[in-house]
Simulated scan of single mutants.
Amino acid sequence: MPLSEHEQRMLEQMERALYAEDPKFATALEGSGLRTYTRRRVYQAVAGIVVGIALLMTGVIVPNVLWVSVVGFLVMLGCTLLAVTGWRKAPKPGEQPVSGSAGGSAHGRNRQRRSMMNRIEERWQRRRDEQGH
């Protein structure tokens, strides 16, 4: 359902206000990297699944080449996994897509886990201090 004219004007005002207050944050929220990354993964996966279906059908139709069907199934399975893992690894709005090896993303996750553990430990310590006094 399209937005009414009033809603469109309000949305434009909110966007202008956001750009005026914090242009860096506003451009990060545009999500062009996210859209490009996700779109590319989906296109690759769909193309691979179509190729897998073609191989599967070829192996079923042509006699004595059953192995082609198996290869087609494996291609479809691999492309489905590519799409699912690509979707999970897609950057969140405001983040830049991860380029390079997966080691950088694992490092970022470890840093997040450490900071989360630090927060939990700090909370635990505060509770112990509050109960002790």
Results as ranks from 00 to 15, higher is better:
Met1Leu: 06
Pro2Leu: 08
Pro2Lys: 10
Pro2His: 09
Glu5Gly: 12
His6Lys: 12
Glu7Asn: 01
Gln8Trp: 03
Met10Gly: 03
Gln13Leu: 15
Glu15Leu: 14
Leu18Asp: 05
Tyr19Gln: 13
Tyr19Asn: 09
Ala20Gln: 10
Asp22Gln: 07
Lys24Phe: 12
Phe25Pro: 00
Leu29Glu: 03
Gly31Pro: 02
Gly31Cys: 06
Ser32Asn: 09
Ser32Cys: 08
Ser32Ile: 09
Ser32Pro: 03
Arg35Glu: 06
Thr36Val: 08
Arg40Glu: 09
Val42Tyr: 05
Val42Asp: 05
Val42His: 06
Val42Glu: 04
Tyr43His: 08
Gln44Pro: 02
Gln44His: 05
Ala45His: 00
Val46Asp: 04
Ala47His: 00
Ala47Asn: 04
Gly48Trp: 02
Ile49Asn: 03
Ile49Pro: 01
Ile53Leu: 12
Ile53Tyr: 04
Ile53Glu: 02
Leu55Glu: 03
Leu55Gln: 03
Leu55Trp: 01
Leu55Met: 14
Leu56Ile: 01
Val60Lys: 13
Val60Gln: 13
Ile61Thr: 13
Ile61Pro: 02
Val62Gln: 10
Val62Cys: 02
Asn64Ala: 12
Val65Glu: 03
Val68Phe: 02
Val70Pro: 03
Val71Ala: 15
Val71Gln: 00
Gly72Thr: 02
Leu74Ala: 13
Leu74His: 04
Leu74Phe: 11
Leu77Glu: 04
Leu77Cys: 06
Leu77Trp: 08
Gly78Asn: 12
Cys79Met: 14
Thr80Met: 14
Leu82Thr: 02
Ala83Arg: 04
Val84Asn: 02
Gly86Ile: 00
Trp87Leu: 14
Trp87Gly: 11
Trp87Ala: 15
Lys89Met: 08
Lys89Trp: 09
Pro91Ala: 09
Pro91Ser: 05
Lys92Arg: 12
Lys92Leu: 15
Gly94Thr: 02
Gln96His: 07
Gln96Ser: 11
Pro97Ile: 05
Ser99Gly: 07
Ser99Thr: 15
Gly100Val: 04
Gly104Val: 04
Ser105His: 10
His107Phe: 11
His107Pro: 01
Gly108Glu: 14
Gly108Pro: 02
Arg111Phe: 10
Arg111Asn: 09
Arg114Ser: 07
Arg114Gln: 10
Ser115Cys: 05
Met116Cys: 08
Asn118Val: 08
Asn118Gln: 14
Glu121Cys: 06
Glu121Asn: 12
Glu121Thr: 07
Glu122Asp: 12
Glu122Met: 11
Arg123Ile: 10
Trp124Ser: 13
Gln125Ala: 13
Arg128Ser: 09
Arg128His: 11
Asp129Ser: 13
Glu130Tyr: 00
Glu130Leu: 14
Glu130Cys: 05
Gln131Met: 12
Gly132Asp: 10
